[in-house]
Design a protein around this nucleic acid. Structure first.
Length: 140
DNA sequence: GCCAACGTTGGC
DNA sequence: GCCAACGTTGGC
């Protein structure tokens, strides 16, 4: 299974909104970036992703999973744009902030740390494990 | 609210 | 096919 990271602006559509969608999930539409789209093309049913809040919070708050593989983006007629559907799995024990990720040496290669603008990012197995650890550990 | 970084567009 | 101009994103 592969791991990913989905960025959202919580003012527009946040973790609580995804949870409210229940098992049906949400079409992750509106992505207009080739790299992000290519990442979605590579996703398989059941792949897991971190749900990240940009601007407000700047933290990873929950775990989502791919519940529909790539299909045309229904928000546009442009056939270039495709997307997946995701649904909420569970919140993280505690959010992991961008600041925490930046100072964690094992996350120095993380896309979020180095190219925060990419809206759908790959996460390596080891990065995933570190985030899981941090989300369950009291930082103090 | 500013601005740096990045991606895309379009003129040549 | 290059590159300047522009628009957008997102951290600060």
């Amino acid at each position: 299974m592969a791991y990913w990271l989905f960025k959202s602006e919580p003012d527009v559509f946040g973790w609580d909104d995804l949870v409210a969608r229940g098992a049906k999930g949400e079409e992750w539409d509106g992505v207009r970036n080739y790299q992000a789209r290519n990442n979605m093309r590579a996703m398989k049913l059941g792949d897991r992703g971190l749900f990240y809040h940009s601007n407000v919070g700047k933290e990873m708050v929950g775990i989502a999973e791919v519940c529909a593989e790539v299909h045309p983006d229904s928000s546009t007629d442009d056939p270039r744009w495709e997307c997946v559907d995701i649904r909420a799995v569970r919140p993280l024990g505690r959010p992991v902030t961008l600041d925490q990720a930046k100072v964690e040496p094992r996350l120095s290669e993380m896309v979020l740390v180095n190219n925060s603008r990419l809206s759908v990012q790959p996460v390596s197995d080891s990065e995933w494990a570190v985030i899981m650890e941090m989300s369950e550990t009291d930082p103090d």
